[in-house]
Design a binder for these strands. Structure first.
Length: 676
DNA sequence: GGGCCGTACTG
DNA sequence: CAGTACG
DNA sequence: GCCC
């Protein structure tokens, strides 16, 4: 998994050992924190082994591949917080160089990033692939459990799996759970439950903040709960904050007392009627229409109870819309920009790691999604969590998560995470499963075949071309894109697309459109106002973008629909692209929609996924089927399960996203408000 | 104990 | 079809 | 995992 940063990514995984090992590396050394003499020696060795040393300058040199510094403070001192936070480069500690020299090979930089790694290097940052269920604030990237220097140094694995990975994975999980339970029991018996951390840990803390990933954690992690001295005197204040926060989220304590804050009975406030704010829809979302839909939904629910029709989530969605007025989905968002994920960085980091492991190694999407939603709730808090009780009653935070939070607040981590991270199989599965195109099942197969390391996968013949590309650009793809670069690339695509097709509309959706400071990828959504000029554009656009060396590799090339007239007429392309002047690959998607589907496509491709799911559930409760092509009156055919609903003929016409929200009786959310 | 979004491509 | 992907 |  040795990636030669930017020099020649094509050789990403085959950097030669020893001689010339730093070929293609263009490093900047930020002085300080370590003897200048040692730095000089390192520079010479780097150059001797094929690397280049660049002048630091005031701005991070564009051609640089690695920025080396003793720690984050020096980095920020040199370049300022903004540059450092937005840099997609490898901002690593000198430990990376030292260890690479020691091992005679170019090590993956991730474990040495000064923006998350603790000095040990075993608590580096997460690859946190930008697969679906992942809150894409830059702050919540989980930690990593691979890329420890030692892991990279292992010899090739023997191909003799004793048991199937499937079984051993289950066992790994059970071990982790058992351990967690044991530790918890011990703590309870010894009364050693630590509920501390009311204050920042000393004066240096704000300077030590990391831009994008949270501190390292774990045994010698940088993050630990602060001292609890002021805990008691702070309590009243914190309690008030918590209560306010919950109220802001639309969660109201019923009959709580100050002492019983941990036992509040919470309920979601009914949405307030604000229909007047919403202009009446011209074509299918009128009050009358809605009444009809609502009545139909109630009927469906009642009938469903008798006939095995949908229950559960659907019913919950129905409760939500079963009030007058428009539903406000911002219930877990702290108003007025008071949310501060930084406050709970350590907590978020651990939860993020668990979320990633459950998804990428275990394929437990449900559990992972639960963590994801809980993370989102914690990110939206405006106070520092000092006691698990503060989270009791918040949406998506249940018993198990409270236990985990208790662990983290006490020790900085949780036994189950430690157990998982120390399990070599889990580490391997997580690594494989983090490759684009490789999911948990394939990861297990590869593991069972005897593979243990990423670079070995290159040769495996059963990999698809896309998976091979995913392996090759494993590290590239995980580097986040600074917002301003995404904006430039959006403009570039707009320019090229307009040359090919005047009048074409090009928007970058996804986390970019939701206003995030960094993006995992680019989601380009296109349409043409005249309703037909978009046809056949995508292949030409991609070809042109390849000509100018912007789009570089394909991952998925959809069949050309819009040329003929068969399907929905939506063209799709997934691939990789390069920010001009740099070799680093980023994920980029293109979706070209006919004008009448564009609002649905844009909504879907702006996300986030939680919003998409919720809107679809809400639509279901109103007997509507929502997808990225349209919104269709649902027709429950006799004897069909809910999953077998056929679409009515015509979509409810929606020209804008507002139309969709209005039809569903959901309060309109600006893109930046869609980070649910 | 059951539900948890809906769709599209690959092999 | 299962697996993986996208938000 | 959470929620009903």
């Amino acid at each position: 998994m040795v990636r030669k940063a930017q020099g020649s990514p094509a050789k990403a995984l085959t950097a030669p050992a020893g001689h010339g090992m730093f070929e293609g590396v263009r490093a900047v050394f930020v002085e300080g924190g370590i003897l200048g003499k040692r730095i000089e020696i390192w520079k010479k060795r780097l150059i001797g082994l094929g690397g280049q040393v660049l002048d630091p300058g005031k701005r991070i040199p564009r051609e640089a591949t690695h920025i080396l510094a003793a720690d984050a403070e020096r980095l920020i001192k040199q370049y300022g917080r903004e540059q450092v936070e937005e840099s997609p480069l490898f901002l690593v500690s000198f430990g990376w160089l030292e260890e690479s020299l020691a091992q005679g090979k170019l090590l993956p930089p991730n474990a040495y990033r000064v923006f998350s790694s603790s000095r040990s290097g075993s608590a580096g940052r997460s690859p946190a692939r930008s697969r679906s269920a992942s809150p894409d604030t830059a702050q919540s990237r989980g930690g990593n459990l691979l890329e420890s220097p030692t892991a990279s140094a292992q010899p090739p694995a023997p191909k003799t799996p004793a048991t199937s990975a499937q079984k051993r994975l289950r066992e790994a999980h059970e071990r982790a759970e058992d351990l967690a339970a044991e530790v918890r029991e011990d703590n309870e018996q010894s009364g050693a439950v630590a509920l501390v951390g009311a204050e920042d840990e000393g004066g240096e803390s704000s300077e030590r903040r990391e831009g994008e990933g949270g501190q390292g954690f774990g045994l010698q992690g940088d993050w630990r709960p602060g001292g609890g001295d002021k805990q008691l005197e702070k309590w009243g204040e914190v309690r008030n904050d918590v209560t306010k926060e919950k109220e802001a989220m639309g969660i109201r304590p019923l009959g709580s007392t100050a002492e019983a804050i941990g036992r509040e009975v919470m309920r979601i406030e009914p949405p307030r009627g604000n229909a007047t704010e919403q202009p009446t829809h011209s074509g299918g979302g009128s009050d009358e229409d809605h009444e009809i839909l609502l009545r139909a939904a109630k009927r469906a629910r009642i009938e469903g109870a008798d006939s095995g029709k949908p229950q559960g989530g659907l019913e919950r969605a129905l409760v939500e819309v079963n009030e007058e007025g428009f539903l406000d989905l911002r219930e877990n968002q702290t108003p007025a920009g008071m949310a501060n994920p930084e406050l709970n960085r350590g907590l978020l980091k651990v939860l993020g790691e668990l979320k990633d492991i459950y998804r990428d190694a275990f394929g437990d999407d449900r559990r992972s999604f639960s963590y994801y939603k809980a993370i989102s709730v914690v990110e939206n808090l405006s106070f520092k969590v000092t006691s698990a009780e503060q989270l009791k009653g918040l949406p998506s935070i249940g018993r198990s998560l409270l236990d985990v939070v208790r662990d983290i607040l006490g020790t900085g981590t949780t036994p189950r995470l430690l157990a998982l991270k120390n399990d070599p199989m889990v580490r391997a599965l997580f690594e494989f499963g983090s490759v684009w195109g490789i999911g948990p099942v394939t990861a297990r197969k590869l593991y069972d075949m005897g593979y243990r390391k990423l670079e070995e996968l290159e040769k495996e013949p059963s990999l698809t071309q896309a998976q091979r590309t995913g392996v090759k650009f494993f590290y590239d793809i995980q580097q986040r894109i600074p917002r301003h670069e995404a904006a430039e690339m959006e403009a570039l695509v707009q320019r090229v697309a307009t040359e090919l097709c005047p009048g074409i509309e090009v928007l970058c959706g996804g986390s970019y459109r939701r206003g995030k400071a960094t993006c995992g990828d680019m989601d380009m959504v296109l349409t043409h106002p005249d309703g037909h000029s978009h046809k056949g554009l995508l292949p030409k656009l991609v070809a042109r973008l390849k000509e100018i060396d912007f789009v570089t590799e394909d991952l998925l090339v959809g069949p050309s629909h819009s040329a003929d007239d068969s399907d929905h007429g939506v063209d799709t392309y997934f691939g990789l692209c390069k920010y001009p002047g740099r070799e680093l690959r980023h994920r980029i998607d293109f979706k070209v929609y006919p004008r009448d589907q564009h609002a649905f496509g844009l909504l879907a491709w702006t996300g986030n996924d939680v919003l998409n799911r919720r809107l679809r559930l809400i639509a279901s409760a109103q007997q509507l089927h929502l997808n990225d092509h349209g919104m269709y009156p649902a027709i429950y055919r006799e004897g069909d399960s809910v999953h077998n609903v056929s679409r009515g003929s015509e979509s409810v016409p929606c020209y804008t996203e507002r139309d969709i929200f209005r039809t569903l009786r959901v309060k309109y959310l600006e893109p930046k408000e869609r980070n649910l």
